[in-house]
């Protein structure tokens, strides 16, 4: 008698909740393997769990998690898992310093960690070959100049490494930097995908057991213009332009001034009209033109203006640009007073 195994699966769709959650609907498809053409729709809410009424033995089944955008109509494959009676189980967990995102992400200069957990691997001489090992893949793919990953053809990703895992347990891989190709290492934007696949056998082709992707966003840069190094301000402050490029998701940006030369660890005074908190999932650019910032200049002497950003990745703000300038508002009045009878 055929053993009936029910597959319990969990759907976690936090990544598509939020501002646009109402425009996406999730679908889970169970595809019986080897491919017989039978597909089963498992209706699920945005988050939750339920048992599949379809057996997965003896040949296994692939579970596909899709989401469909209402307008324009478009479907996206979010995850797939192959489940079978002797097929090992795997988990991939990527962690970064950015804890504000449901999708793992970090910056081109920051590290990330990949945790691979495997269970159910067998060693017996009579065990099926597909039960003795799994394959771990590392794919890298650039989004291109100013790309954000929308509509990315992931079949074009590059295999950076592929290895075989034969032991159960958890392995932790620490990456000090991403491995995505790019001439300017500070401007990398793309993704790395770590996925575990089963070994192909007569029942099913090599199928995904677990996968997770980490997004890599570029290091921000900025420029202050309208005031030059060492410029002396005698009267009203000049109109300045503050350019922020590749601002990291959920970062804050602003400009500050303080008396004295450039130095670290200084809390200055914010230039009015220069502050913004960005609530986006991809990098953005901002350009501010500020003409009236006299109020923050409180004394004569040398001053410094800094362009700063604060991100979830950094304990302290990051300086994007700075300009030293002088203030000399001493008005010398030469005159005489005479009296006459």
């Amino acid at each position: 008698m055929k053993t009936q195994t029910l597959c319990k699966f969990v759907v976690s769709m936090l990544m598509i909740t939020g501002a646009q959650a109402q425009t996406y609907t999730n679908f889970i498809r169970q595809v019986q393997l080897p491919s017989s053409g039978v597909q089963f729709d498992v209706s699920v809410p945005a988050a939750g769990q339920q048992q599949s009424p379809l057996e997965i033995n003896p040949t296994g089944a692939r579970f596909e998690l899709h989401t469909v955008r209402t307008s324009p109509l478009q479907s996206y494959l979010l995850d797939t898992r192959y489940v079978g009676s002797y097929v090992p189980v795997a988990e991939v967990l990527i962690t970064t310093e950015d804890v504000n995102s449901n999708v793992p992400r970090t910056r081109a200069d920051r590290p990330f960690t990949v945790q691979i957990t495997t269970a159910g691997l067998r060693e017996g001489p009579s065990d099926p070959e597909a039960s003795k090992s799994v394959k771990l893949f590392r794919h890298t793919q650039s989004y291109g100049v100013n790309g954000d990953g929308e509509g990315l053809d992931r079949t074009q990703a590059i295999i950076a490494a592929q290895v075989s895992i034969r032991k159960n347990g958890t392995e932790t891989l620490v990456y000090a930097l991403n491995g995505i190709a790019g001439a300017d290492r500070s401007k990398i934007r793309g993704e790395e995908r770590f996925s575990v696949f089963s070994v192909a056998d007569y029942q099913a082709p090599s199928s995904q057991l677990a996968s997770q992707t980490v997004q890599i966003w570029p290091v921000a840069d900025g420029a202050i213009s309208g005031i030059t190094d060492g410029q002396t301000i005698e009267f009203s402050t000049p109109t300045i332009t503050l350019a922020f490029n590749d601002i990291y998701p959920n970062a804050r940006i602003w400009a500050q001034v303080y008396p004295g030369p450039l130095r670290d660890n200084v809390v200055g005074t914010m230039v009015p009209g220069s502050w913004e908190a960005l609530n986006y999932s991809t990098p953005k650019n901002r350009l501010f033109t500020i003409s009236n910032w006299d109020s923050v200049i409180t004394a004569n002497g040398p001053w410094t203006m800094e362009l700063l950003t604060s991100t979830p990745l950094d304990v302290n703000p990051i300086r994007l640009d700075s300009v030293p300038f002088n203030v000399d508002r001493t008005i010398t009045f030469n005159g005489s007073v005479t009296t006459s009878e």
């Binding site: 200069d109 500070s186 921000a220 602003w254 005074t269 914010m270 700063l308 703000p317 990051i318």
Partner: peptide, 17 residues
């Protein structure tokens, strides 16, 4: 007139990579 101070007193800034 002083502008708004937006950071805590113990923060430190450093240059971008």
């Amino acid at each position: 007139v002083y502008g708004e101070v937006v950071r805590e007193a113990d923060v430190r800034s450093s240059d971008a990579a």
